[in-house]
Simulated scan of single mutants.
Amino acid sequence: MSILGNCPYCKGKVISKKINVKGKNIKLYFCENAKKEYDDSEQYVFTHDSTCRFRVYSNTFLRYNKRSFSEYEMKKLLQEQQVVVRLHGKKGGSEYFKYVIPHEEYGVTILWEEEVEEKAC
């Protein structure tokens, strides 16, 4: 585990941790105050003492053919409140760049309407 920066919402430490999900090794970036556990019905839920919900899985952009949201990208996002990511169209064809910003409910979100300036890449 390593500390990447401060949470954009509660200023707690954002930690990177390697996990295995459905047989795939990925990284989970999460605020130290966003604690989860399995409840009685085997649902993975936030604990009663969680005070934050900031969590991002490194494969969050897989549907846009981006294999991994890297630790470097997460650090930059935490420092600058935005980062430019490279995404790909279906079947890996076209390539395009978009801004990603923190999102309180989903961890991160893509700004689809914003055009990325070339020097920002």
Rank of each mutant, 00 (worst) to 15 (best):
M1Y: 06
I3G: 08
I3F: 10
G5S: 09
N6R: 13
N6G: 13
C7L: 03
P8K: 10
C10V: 09
C10E: 06
K11M: 14
K11C: 11
K13Y: 07
V14G: 10
S16R: 08
K17R: 03
K18H: 10
I19C: 07
I19Q: 07
N20T: 15
N20Y: 02
V21R: 09
V21Y: 04
K22Q: 15
G23L: 06
K24E: 02
K24W: 00
I26G: 05
K27L: 11
K27S: 13
K27H: 12
F30Y: 13
C31R: 00
E32V: 01
A34Y: 00
K35L: 10
E37K: 05
E37C: 09
E37G: 11
Y38K: 07
Y38W: 09
D39T: 00
D39Q: 00
Q43H: 09
Y44H: 01
Y44F: 07
Y44T: 01
H48T: 14
H48I: 12
C52M: 03
R53P: 05
F54L: 03
R55A: 02
V56C: 01
V56N: 00
Y57V: 10
N59S: 06
T60V: 12
F61H: 06
L62A: 08
R63M: 05
R63A: 03
Y64R: 07
Y64T: 00
K66S: 14
R67V: 12
R67Y: 12
S68F: 04
Y72C: 10
Y72G: 11
E73A: 12
E73Y: 04
K76R: 15
L77S: 13
L78Q: 05
E80N: 14
E80H: 14
E80Y: 14
Q82K: 14
Q82G: 04
V83I: 13
V85Y: 01
R86G: 07
R86C: 11
L87G: 00
K91G: 03
K91V: 03
S94Y: 14
F97R: 01
K98D: 03
I101N: 04
I101Y: 03
P102Q: 14
E104F: 09
E105F: 09
Y106L: 10
Y106E: 09
Y106P: 02
G107A: 08
G107W: 02
L111H: 08
L111N: 05
L111K: 10
W112M: 11
E114Q: 14
E115T: 15
E118W: 10
